[in-house]
């Protein structure tokens, strides 16, 4: 981070032995925090890529059980996708409202995000419960194991995101738009948008590619 800021001074005295030059010092805490969280998100994406790789390898190994095309409901997945997309948008609105310190729009944006996230979770839970009830649980075949672990891992992330979202609303309610609360809000927005990116991979690879007859 200091690299770009000092690039202009990189002439005759690269090691600053002579005179003391004006140094910008460490980056502001807001940048350091968000950058660290960005690294975490990338490592989370790497973890998801392992689940994707397992699914890609195992998607044909149905062991006499159902194929993807027989159990996936395109309409359900489309509704889930629209929910997550809209929630990403309202989350963006909430973070703009937090930056301009507008409580009403912040609470409204976060509430809508929460409701959309919960609708997504309910739809996914019903899909899982329906599959298990029909005897197509994760232990039925390698394909279903990979399916449940990949989609379930994303669902767990969304559940954690909803809890985090409610925490952020409570913190803004109790502490106001303090600098540390705003940093957490920024990390939350990054987390929520990153989950949406992973869902793009899930619906494309698992449901649309894996659901092809």
């Amino acid at each position: 981070m200091a690299m770009t800021a000092t690039a202009g001074h990189a002439h005759a005295d690269p090691h600053h032995i002579g005179l003391v030059i004006e140094h910008p010092g460490p980056a502001p805490k807001r940048i350091v925090t968000a950058y660290g969280f960005w690294i975490f998100l990338l490592s989370d994406i790497v973890m998801f890529s392992c689940f994707f790789a397992a699914y890609a390898v195992l998607s044909g190994q149905t062991a006499g059980g159902p194929k993807g095309a027989e159990i996936f409901e395109q309409r359900n997945v489309a509704i889930e996708t629209v929910c997550l997309l809209l929630s990403s948008f309202t989350c963006g609105m909430a973070s703009i409202a937090a930056d301009v310190r507008n409580r009403f729009w912040f609470y409204l944006g976060m509430t809508v995000t929460c409701v959309l996230g919960l609708i997504f979770l309910v739809l996914e839970f019903r899909e899982f419960a329906d599959l298990v009830a029909r005897g197509y649980g994760p232990s039925r075949s390698a394909f279903l194991t990979a399916f449940f672990s990949l989609v379930g891992c994303h669902g767990l992330h969304v559940s954690a995101g909803v809890l985090w979202l409610l925490t952020m609303m409570a913190q803004v309610f109790a502490k106001g738009f303090r600098a540390d609360v705003l940093r957490r809000m920024m990390c939350f927005a990054l987390f929520w948008h990153a989950l949406d990116i992973i869902w793009v991979g899930v619906f494309s690879v698992v449901y649309l590619l894996g659901g092809a007859p």
């Binding site: 800021a5 980056a27 925090t33 950058y35 969280f37 973070s95 920024m186």
Partner: peptide
């Protein structure tokens, strides 16, 4: 101005 941007910013 002239500083880096945090991700998401």
């Amino acid at each position: 101005a002239g500083h880096d941007l945090a991700p998401g910013e």
